[in-house]
Nucleic acid binder design. Structure first.
Lengths: 334, 334
DNA sequence: ACCACTTACTAAACCGGTTTAGTGCGAGGA
DNA sequence: TCCTCGCACTAAACCGGTTTAGTAAGTGGT
């Protein structure tokens, strides 16, 4: 693996590497017509590909951004990533994608790694636990955009779902179909993850507005291994819900497993609605109603916002928190 | 965003940057105990993070590899990526993941980009159309591993499923349950993609061995938008299959949509078996039997093989083609 | 007192580009 | 004829690290 360098091209074309560099950067006004042709030929002959690492070092930019998702297992994450990728591609940027696996230490290690690799900016689904570190990056004027979750201060632009509206829509749907005893299934809230907290709050508010009782037992917010047991326990008790609102796709899968195991029929025995869609939900039996997040829009906006931040010189003290409206997809499960 | 450099640390600690460099690389034998402490303090005080780009330039290695998947929409692709990621993480490597979208030109552009970014090696799901370019990279001794698909010469290590065995298992299952009229649903084969071709051949061989007739009409290998129409057309004709073998997840989704639309019941009206699993298939109604690929193993081996290739100096003329055994997951759809 | 040897450290070249200041030359103007 | 200017091009510094060769000071042996 002996690599061709600009010097090799220069030698072959009989010019200096400065001229080759100008050629590579399409600044043809710095050379004569015949020189241009000779350089062109030399590059093609040698199969020269410029070394981006050298270029990045000198120019102090890599054309690369880092994305750290809290948990890659959510379809929400993968869809956002895809949208970010598209927007970056359009602007000649490339991506390092990292999965923090909901662990703040992992997140921190990835931030360090990405900063060391000189990414031009970061899109982070923040875990709760690196506030000081974010603050430090803020001071260094490092461009960052937060997605899906908020931290206590809006030190960077933050894009996320209007979670309370999503919950309201879910409760509306269920109530409209006569389900007054509504339970909720969520993954664990021990880490105070924004969307889960807000969705639970939204659910409580909506229930209260309908004058419906909220049984604390009906709110299951556990690690996914535990959800099945809790559901079973609740189901076996005297006071069961008639419907469940699953606040994300992982919670929904656990809910569906439980329903399958108990041979229940949707929506007759139990109504179901969830946040986050998947191609399989449309062809499930019955098709599951969901509340979609505008993932494409969020991802694209996140990338766009970050690229703007990278391009601008003035850093603000505070940034806006942008909320996105959820989209109801009515199918046959409520 | 004013970055701290090694020079800043050196100044603050009152040493030369050579010494700081030695410290960063844990070569403490090159400095006295007190110096070590001063450097340590300076690094912490300044929050210094070494610039990997500069390091990469000098050392001619980036600790980064590129992965180009043919089509990211297959769960197979995402699972392989996850396994590659794990193995790389364990070895301190990072990943650029690119989606060629089944287009050779896109693939080529990504290869160029990744080579320019000085990745240490590539894992490619090759599209058919860049043979000459692969050959060129081979001559330059650039480390590459192919996954999922073969090209006509084994110029790089190639890891893929034993596709004919997978088809045999599928036919076995269907026949065992009395389904003798077996159709096949695949995505398009106009690009001669290895797994699709081999799975169709395997299906034909297996059917022949059972002495079962193969109707060319029963083999649907089309772009996914077309699959539904073809299925409907076939179903409306006089001579329908009693079961379908879907050769990948995208084909399966189209098949299930068709089944849903026609209100057919699985397996009574129509038996179904597919290659590639997904969490939803286990909770589908009825649960769908599948043939899993050992994605974790393939991905891990691919990464391991590549890292070995990167570490070694001697390049072989030819490399082995490694085949992986498919795994049957019996559920209730046949 | 002198030499050899270790210890602790530094200077400077190097990686492969980019970029700025500058040079040699021929043409045009006074 | 001399001066100025623009054209075509180059030399060299620079980006931020790594690495090698080298040096100054101190130690121990004879």
């Amino acid at each position: 693996m002996k690599k061709i360098t600009m010097q090799d091209v220069a030698l072959k074309a009989g010019v200096s590497k400065s001229t080759v560099s100008q050629y590579i950067n399409n600044r043809f006004e710095f050379m004569g017509a015949s020189t241009k042709l000779r350089v062109e030929a030399a590059i093609k002959d040698l199969g020269y590909i410029p070394n981006q690492v050298a270029k990045s070092l000198k120019q102090k930019k890599t054309g690369t951004i880092g994305v750290i998702v809290a948990n890659i297992l959510h379809t929400f994450s993968t869809e956002i990533i895809r949208a970010i990728e598209d927007e970056c591609e359009r602007n000649g940027f490339h991506l390092f994608v990292c999965n923090a696996d909901d662990q703040p230490e992992k997140e921190r290690a990835y931030i360090d790694m990405l900063v060391a690799k000189q990414v031009d900016g970061l899109i982070i689904f923040p875990t709760n636990g690196n506030y000081d570190y974010y603050k430090q990056l803020k001071n260094a004027e490092f461009p960052i955009v937060f997605v899906d979750r908020m931290i206590n201060e809006a030190i960077f632009p933050t894009l996320l779902l209007d979670n309370e509206s999503a919950s309201r829509i879910a409760v509306d749907q269920l109530v409209k179909k006569g389900k007054k005893k509504v339970g909720l299934v969520s993954t664990s809230i021990t880490q105070h993850v924004t969307p889960r907290i807000e969705r639970i709050n939204g659910y409580k508010k909506a229930m209260a507005e309908y004058g419906l009782e909220i049984e604390e037992d009906w709110i299951i917010a556990q690690d996914k291994q535990e959800i099945g047991n809790r559901l079973q326990h609740l189901w076996d008790s005297a006071n069961r819900p008639e419907a469940f609102f699953a606040t994300n796709d992982l919670a929904l899968i656990e809910l569906l497993k439980f329903i399958k195991k108990n041979g229940l029929s949707i929506p007759a025995d139990i109504g179901v609605i969830a946040i986050d869609d998947s191609p399989f939900l449309a062809i499930a039996t019955p098709p599951i109603s969901v509340i979609r997040q505008p993932t494409f829009e969020i991802g694209q906006d996140a990338a766009h916002t970050l690229l703007e931040l990278i391009g601008s010189k003035d850093f603000k003290e505070e940034y806006e928190e942008r909320r996105y409206l959820p989209i109801l997809v009515e199918r046959e499960s409520v």
